[in-house]
């Protein structure tokens, strides 16, 4: 049984995956051997119509999206789904001639599995595009964090804090929504932990910059230590955001492969 890494994908694919598994088991155990398969022309026609709509909508998306990876990854999934749909049509034609046909049964299993696989590919492609949107926001924050090094006055610090705040809020909201969407408990926890650390470190960083600015303007020494302190907090925050980016790209399969 495949394991789906988001709740949306799971809710869409789990019912069909379960039914395919049951039918495959029934066939493997010979439970349906020697039994006629009824005329499937009507339900197969419904699948064919749904596939043709899906591919039409999908192709329009490929044409309009600016996401180059989505442009690349979607067409093979359309082909997979279309070929599988053709197999189901062939199977229903074979069954009309012979309701006991063994090759037709194999075509039904292959076609159903192919559609599950193709639709799974499509949903994953979309999910990866969503993840890339979150990663772009995280990278924006990573980039802006480096500006901390050039903050030398209190005025700069106010601007810096003002600019960093909305991005942080956006990132935090996106990570919160994403962790709720994940089915893998460990990945959810890793995102929550890293995001909490980043949020806790934000006032620490601002305070470290403030101490650096004050120390530098007072010319009383201690600038190097203040700088080291600021760098330490900045590096810790960057490491946590990089960890968030890494975890966002994990799927359950990665974890299984790793295990």
């Amino acid at each position: 049984m495949p394991v789906f890494h988001t709740k949306t994908i799971e809710s869409i694919l789990e019912p069909v995956a379960q039914q395919i598994s049951h039918l495959v088991i029934m066939h493997e155990e010979g439970e349906v051997d020697g039994k006629a398969i009824p005329d499937l022309t009507v339900p197969v026609a419904a699948v064919q119509a749904a596939v043709s709509n899906l591919v039409r909508v999908g192709k329009e998306t490929v044409q309009t999206t600016e996401d180059q990876l989505m442009k690349r990854d979607m067409p093979p999934a359309f082909i997979k789904v279309e070929n599988s749909s053709s197999k189901l049509v062939q199977a229903s034609q074979m069954l009309k001639a012979d309701p006991y046909s063994v090759p037709a049964r194999d075509y039904l299993i292959d076609g159903s599995r192919g559609i599950l696989s193709g639709t799974s590919d499509l949903l994953l492609t979309f999910d990866e595009a969503e993840v890339r949107k979150i990663i772009r926001v995280c990278k924006g924050i990573l980039e802006y964090l480096t500006v901390a090094e050039v903050v030398e006055t209190m005025e700069d610090l106010i601007t810096y804090t003002k600019n960093l705040g909305p991005g942080m809020t956006k990132m935090s909201k996106m990570i919160e929504e994403r962790q709720q969407e994940l089915t893998h408990q460990e990945h959810r926890q890793m995102l929550v932990n890293s995001m909490n650390t980043v949020k806790e470190l934000l006032p620490v960083l601002i305070s470290a910059i403030k101490i650096f600015v004050t120390t530098k303007s007072s010319r009383g020494g201690g600038t190097e230590e203040a700088e080291r302190n600021r760098r330490f907090t900045f590096e810790k925050m960057s490491a946590e955001i990089n960890e968030i980016i890494r975890v966002l790209q994990l799927t359950t399969w990665d974890e299984d492969a790793w295990a």
């Binding site: 949306t8 869409i12 694919l13 019912p15 069909v16 039914q19 395919i20 049951h22 039918l23 029934m26 398969i37 009824p38 499937l40 339900p43 197969v44 419904a46 699948v47 119509a49 749904a50 596939v51 709509n53 899906l54 909508v57 999908g58 998306t61 309009t64 999206t65 789904v81 189901l88 039904l108 159903s112 559609i115 599950l116 639709t119 499509l122 949903l123 979309f126 595009a129 969503e130």
Partner: peptide, 28 residues
Amino acid sequence: LRVSWEQLLTTIARTINEVENQILTRDA
């Protein structure tokens, strides 16, 4: 649990429609 081919094909058609809805929603 007994599953028939008709049931599976109906589920497949519904699944494909749901995937299409996902594409339409996320695209918008």
